[in-house]
Design a protein around this nucleic acid. Structure first.
Lengths: 245, 245
DNA sequence: CGGTAGCTTGACAACTGTCAATCTTGGTGG
DNA sequence: CCACCAAGATTGACAGTTGTCAAGCTACCG
């Protein structure tokens, strides 16, 4: 029940060059590391894995043995309450790490599930800790990434504590687009694999309220949106919404 | 504008024994470290500092040179928006670290301010990184503490996304008491230095709503509360509130 | 091409926010 | 030491945004 990701065979020559040859190397864990450090990292990064929609990277209670990097696709992380309700606490896009909480405890505290067909790299925690010791730059980079996570959580706190439903949705879309832009993906027009229900849950709203926010944005000609297709028609208007309301 | 904490002279013999002799050593950064590691840590920990109510440990924009441990008192951390509004994102109690986001960037992203007369230890980030390299246990402990912070932020997300005003206040009180209990402080009856206004801000509510929640808890004989004095009369009722509503 | 899960819309209710007034409390000065 | 002042906290009345419930629509999967 624990492991769920099905490994995929890569051509032999690539095994040694996972990070070095990755298009996300400037944005992922290797960012800012020199070639030697990346070479060392390459030795430990598990091979890439395909993962299907609704497949779990891990579940709460699993041994927390890896940190993961998203290469392709997207994921949601959530906690589960005793009554079975879930609370989505994060969405992970290409170039981002997830499962960093693994460094706190032996067991996973959250669930992380693929929202669409995706591809990830697994980084064994034990190796990371050993590597951090051998190559300080890697340890520092890990710290940096965790601290970035913390800062993200502060922004989420602000959003949940202050913003109206419309602003929450606008911010989500805006930030989603920004995050895509950072890794060189289309950011004016793209798919959001997350469902309205999940988005509502994440933003602390009801589905109906999210739906109305989307309609409002559509009516104002800020975006077009059907199911998972999204296009930003008026980025300035979107930004204005975020700053004012 | 940057440095704000006024140092206080300690007797000479204590300089070498900051962590070793600290009553919080089992709960703070040294937790789980062996004596050698703690001795190494002692070398680097800046001497304790008193800090007055409303005094800032640091401001956004300051160089992020230290991580801090609370020995006594309490602190609030907050972000500031362009319009001058603040968003409180955390409250720090004895035995807890703050300023961990320092490990992400050269500049502080948030403000941290004493809520009452307090006392802290400053841990220079550069030293911590060097130490982490020399003594892997310290690096691991740092990771562990940051990951714990992340898990805390997930709980806050859940609270802000789901819980009613009454539940938010009940949870805050309950967790506050738990945190005090962990470091051996009175937890049935104590002071909360944070103002209603700040508490409301932190919990994503208005002052009036927080005030009403307190009255409700008082009416139900769950707590007694005046200004900053708080007593938990019925812990079971408090827990029940948290689990159900 | 049909079934179904997910999304949208409408009407209404409820919780929390807003505005305004009053009360407490802690600090200051006479 | 007491009285006053000001900031913070409480309370009440009302409004508004979001939640709830119910129905209908849409689009994707088989």
């Amino acid at each position: 029940m624990s492991t769920a990701v099905s490994p995929k065979i890569l051509e032999l020559g690539a095994l040694r060059r996972i990070c070095s040859g990755c298009s996300l190397r400037e944005l992922c864990l290797p960012a800012g590391l020199d070639n030697d450090a990346i070479a060392a990292l390459d030795e430990f990064v598990q091979k890439r894995q395909d993962i299907q929609p609704q497949e779990m990277a891990y579940r709460a209670g699993d041994p927390a043995s890896n940190v993961y990097a998203v290469r392709l696709g997207s994921f949601k992380s959530y906690r589960m309450r005793k009554n079975g309700d879930i609370q989505i606490i994060g969405v992970h896009l290409p170039g981002e790490l997830f499962g960093l909480d693994a460094l706190a405890s032996e067991q996973r505290q959250v669930y992380t599930e693929a929202l669409e067909k995706s591809n990830i790299c697994a980084l064994p925690v034990g190796d990371l800790e050993r590597l951090s010791h051998q190559i300080p730059a890697i340890g520092r980079q890990m710290m940096r990434l965790m601290a970035r996570e913390l800062n993200n959580s502060y922004e989420e706190h602000e959003l949940l504590a202050n913003d109206s439903a419309l602003t929450r949705v606008a911010k989500f879309i805006w930030r989603y687009a920004q995050r895509r832009q950072q890794v060189g993906l289309q950011y004016r027009q793209f798919d959001i694999a997350i469902s309205r229900q999940d988005l509502a849950n994440y933003l602390g709203l009801q589905v109906e309220t999210v739906s109305r926010a989307f309609r409002e944005l559509r009516d104002r000609k800020v975006i077009t949106a059907s199911r998972s297709k999204l296009e930003i028609l008026d980025p300035d208007a979107l930004q204005a919404l975020i700053r004012k309301e």
